[in-house]
């Protein structure tokens, strides 16, 4: 491995870790639930890249499919249902 390549990989890893931490912090800190769900989807995609860097492409595949795709969709559906329930109880406009 050339020194160029090692340096670039180090830069890649550092950027990835910093972005992951930043996204995780923003995700937990926010009070807007919808924003947190979208950040969770982005977090899943970035985490999948982290698994790639840990030499585990199979885990990366599972993370992309389950973490980002399916869990993101499930969280969105759950959020919509929660809001509809809340607006129904307070006599809002319903759906």
């Amino acid at each position: 491995m050339s020194p160029w390549q090692a340096g670039l990989l180090l830069a890649f890893d550092l950027t990835l870790v910093l972005t992951l931490l930043g996204v995780a912090w923003q995700l937990l800190r926010g009070v807007n639930l919808f924003r947190s769900v979208v950040l969770f989807i982005a977090f899943g995609l970035l985490l999948s890249l982290a698994w790639v860097r840990l030499q585990a492409p199979d885990v990366a595949l599972a993370e992309a499919a389950i973490g980002a795709g399916v869990t993101g969709a499930l969280l969105l559906v759950a959020l919509g249902r929660l809001r509809r329930m809340a607006s129904g109880r307070h006599g809002g406009e319903g759906s």
């Binding site: 499930l74 969105l76 959020l79 809001r83």
Partner: peptide, 9 residues
């Protein structure tokens, strides 16, 4: 999922 779900912001 985002588009199909009613009740989201």
């Amino acid at each position: 999922a985002f588009v199909r779900q009613r009740g989201l912001p």
